[in-house]
């Protein structure tokens, strides 16, 4: 198991080779319809999530824009 990590929503998250935004979302059950993704502060448009690779040390923010109560 790799000892490399990324930051996911300000929490340490294990890195692995070939990790993408879509994989991260699937692993974390982030399946809400209205989500903003930023990697190292830069916005990643939804159509690029499947192909956008995440690298060790990246700061990934997956922000749910949720109205709620």
């Amino acid at each position: 198991m790799s000892d490399k990590h990324i930051e996911l929503n300000h929490r340490t998250y294990p890195y692995r080779e070939g990790l993408t935004i879509s994989a991260l979302m699937q692993e974390n059950n982030f399946n809400f319809s209205h989500i903003i993704v930023k990697v190292n502060g830069a916005l990643v448009e939804e159509e690029k999530w499947t192909k956008t690779a995440v690298y060790a040390g990246d700061n990934v923010e997956i922000i749910h824009i949720f109205g709620g109560g």
Binding site: N9, H64, G68
Partner: peptide
Amino acid sequence: QHDEAWLIFMDMVNNQIP
């Protein structure tokens, strides 16, 4: 009542207010 503050996603999921 949740009409004062509904912060679950900001806090628990997004961790925007750590």
